[in-house]
């Protein structure tokens, strides 16, 4: 059972359609008790870091999610903005705190200097397929990205990058924390494999 955190910022519909297609049980919730009882969390997101950060604080969900992830150590998958919120700080729309699961900052992709278009929108490949959630995907598979901000890591954790002018963090695995900058739920067959791998992960608790 996957608990999808809905703070009103996500493309929840796309994620639930993918889970339904994969015949996975899930609930979509913004209720504290549901999250306290969760055994696997999914945090999708589209929108701005600022708004999400504010909503997390105001709803009181932030502490509960932190407890589930850091103390109970249940698996969590962050998608797009969901991944970015795992960082300590975000610089979109001001300076706002994230969960801080990862020692990282979220900054605007330096596109202007390199004459690149923003958002980074479309299909791009990853630096390797050497992460657990990529089991069974094709080498050099492409995934669908839509973002203008990127995560800058300040710690050494397993991650893969994608190239857009520079190397941009595209996927992270740190203990029970999994995240993709791209949208697996919109990345056709290869993306659905990632979702399936997450669904099939053994929960340690």
């Amino acid at each position: 059972m996957i608990t999808i955190i809905d703070i009103g910022i996500g493309n929840i519909g796309s994620v639930t359609r993918a889970l339904k297609f994969l015949k996975c049980k899930y609930i979509v919730t913004d209720k504290k008790e549901d999250i306290e009882n969760s055994t696997k969390l999914l945090f999708p997101g589209v929108g701005s870091f600022a708004e999400a950060s504010r909503k997390l604080e105001a709803s009181g969900l932030k502490e509960i999610i932190e407890h589930q992830v850091l103390v109970k150590q249940i698996p969590i998958l962050g998608i797009c903005l969901g991944m970015q919120l795992f960082a300590k700080i975000g610089f979109e729309g001001g300076i706002f705190p994230g969960f801080g699961f990862i020692d990282a900052e979220v900054k605007l992709i330096e596109a202007k200097k390199q004459n690149l278009r923003l958002p980074h929108m479309g299909w791009n490949n990853l630096s390797s397929s050497n992460l657990k959630l990529l089991d069974g995907t094709t080498a050099n598979a492409c995934f669908y990205f839509v973002h203008s901000y990127e995560m800058k890591l300040n710690e050494n954790i397993s991650h893969l990058t994608t190239e857009y002018g520079t190397d941009i963090v595209a996927m992270i695995e740190k203990d029970n924390i999994y995240a993709t900058q791209f949208h697996p739920e919109k990345s056709q067959e290869q993306g659905l494999k990632i979702m399936k791998n997450f669904i099939e992960l053994q929960s340690i608790c």
């Binding site: 519909g13 359609r17 949208h183 739920e185 919109k186 056709q188």
Partner: peptide
């Protein structure tokens, strides 16, 4: 359409 299209 969206229920079976896992693409943008």
């Amino acid at each position: 359409i969206a229920s079976e299209c896992f693409m943008p």
